[in-house]
Structure formats: C-alpha cells, structure tokens
Nucleic acid binder design. Structure first.
Lengths: 153, 153
DNA sequence: TATAGAATTGACGTAAACGTAAAGGTGCAC
DNA sequence: GTGCACCTTTACGTTTACGTCAATTCTATA
C-alpha cells in the first residue's frame, strides 16, 4: 500500500485503487486540515466516532472519515455532546433511506435549539445584571474620587 | 447564646445582643432562604467565601453572611467563577474607601462582559447553523415521504 | 547510518461546583 | 426513652473533552 509522503501530501495524484480516488491521509495532516489535535482524533476514535483504516499501526483517514469529522465538528459547534453525535451517526445506513436517523437528528436538534435559546436568555440576563452593577460601581468610584478631590483641597 | 427554635425561626423577636438585632440563622434556613443546598453553603465556607460563627459546631449565619451570599449568587449569575468572587470580596475593607476593590471589580466585570458578549455571538452562530441544518433535514424527510407515497401508489 | 520528524499506546491529570454517601452528635416533642 | 429533624465532618464521585507526559517504534532522508 503506497503512502503519501508527508511533504507533498497536498499534491495527491496517487494510485487509484478499487473504484474511486482513495486519498489516504495520516493523522497529522488530518489534524492540521481540520484544526484539531492528534489527541482529539484519537479520542474520537476511542469513542467510536471515527474509524480510520490502518496501515500496520498507522491510522489512514479517507474522505469518509473526513465527512464524519465534519459532522462531528458541526455537532460540536451547535452544542451537541459527543454522545449525541454518536447516537445520530450510528443510525446512518448507506443502504437505507435513513428516515430514523433524520427523525432522531431533528428531534435532538429541536431540543438543542431550545437549550440554546434558553442559554441566550440567561446570557442576556447576565449581561443586563452585570451592566447595572458596573454602572453602580462606576458611580461609587466617581463619588470616591470626588471626595478625594475635596479632601485634597 | 440563645438559639432560634427550628420551627419559629421566621418570627424573630429575639434578644438584641451587642448593638443591633443579630438574628442568627442555622444552615437549613439559610439554604432554604436563598435556594441553595447545605452542601453549597459548606462548600462556599470551605472556599473562604463565607465565615459563619459557630455555636459549638453549629454554623450560625448573620446578616453579614447573608449579604455576602447575595453577592456570591449575583457573581455566579453573571458568570464569575468563585475564585473571582473571592478575590473581589477579599479586598473589602469596612474601614476604607474600597477603591481598590471597586477598581478590581470593574476590571473583572469588563472582561466578563466581553466574555458574555462573545458567548452570545457563539450561541447566535450555533442557533443559525442549527436552524439551517434543521431546514435541510426537514427537506430530506419530506422528500423521503414523497418517495414513499409514490411507491405505495 | 545517524538523526529528526511522525506515529503509536497507555495512563494519569484537569477544570468547577458541588452530589452523595457514611457515620455520627444534639435537642426536643411525645 | 425513643424517634425524628436537624446538624456535623470526611472523603470519594461526577461530568466532558480532551491535555500532557512517557516510553517506544517507525520512516524518511541527508
């Protein structure tokens, strides 16, 4: 099995294997490409979210893995836990209509959306409270400096 | 030192000690009053945020402690860590102008406000992404059911 | 062939704010 | 004299998503 040399991995005009252009990528490049650490990729694998092939002990990521990683990162961005992401991805069946998967995703998404909106409300609250407190503190500080000024007179 | 009997603690027409009406409250009532657990109050004490007096081994909270707890809860609400809250409270000096304390509080508040606004932006982002994804999923689901309908025909 | 760069597994550490026993004292209403 | 509500301390557990070594192996290249 031919590997992509670390330096020229970007220029991938490699062997076409079985059917399509399978461009394998090792963990380092994968990490760089998606802005995650090696640890993260291994962690996701450990959690069953990724399943790269192996060349001996070296992980080889294909575009399937890239698609999955993109999904994981999207899920993470919108606040899903990795468990949720896994649950949804585990339902994926390349031979079916994936209606169940889509329904689950929609269901989870609705709940997550509600959570996000709640969080937003909490943050707005916090911002207001904090702004008020800051105004009060500024007020106290200006009073104090006024006192100092009159004392220094 | 006279204690408030557990049942009638609300009706506090007790002994006026030294100067003011020192109404002592035990941990249970304190917790109920502020909607926190006993564990929380002990935890805050352990972290140096509260310092109730003792009658033997029993904690007695005065209005000083209540004021401090209110501050803690406010801080928590606006997203400060307990460490931050402690730092700010530790600067309190009943005999001074507390200018330093106020400045620190203001400084921390500005940073926290920035964090909150950033978080808000992130959440808004997430909400948008999630909404988009949901629309896409709904689209796919409706296509699927259309297919099913035509197949069942 | 020597060395640097990339990869591996394993395993403990981290952060925050408490939760949750376990095992035991104290006072009071009956 | 007992049951019950209340209080105490000690100390390990929880959660999530990795970070951070450590020790080792593999591979490529000068």
């Amino acid at each position: 099995m031919k590997l992509v040399s670390p330096g020229e991995a970007a220029a991938n005009t490699n062997d076409m294997s079985d059917q399509a252009g399978e461009d394998f990528v090792r963990i380092g490049e994968m990490a760089k490409k998606y802005g995650v650490t090696l640890r993260t990729l291994r962690f996701y694998e450990d959690k069953g979210l990724l399943n790269p092939q192996r060349d001996g002990s070296t992980r080889l990521y294909t575009r399937r893995d890239k698609a999955r990683l993109k999904l994981i990162l999207l899920g993470r961005k919108v606040g899903f836990s990795l468990r949720d992401v896994k649950q949804m991805m585990d339902l994926y069946d390349p031979t079916g209509s994936n209606t169940k998967q889509l329904r689950l995703a929609l269901d989870k998404s609705e709940k997550q959306l509600a959570r996000l909106q709640k969080q937003r409300a909490l943050i707005d609250d916090a911002i207001n409270e904090l702004s008020n407190s800051m105004a009060a503190v500024r007020q106290m500080l200006s009073e104090r400096s006024a006192l100092q000024a009159s004392a220094a007179r």
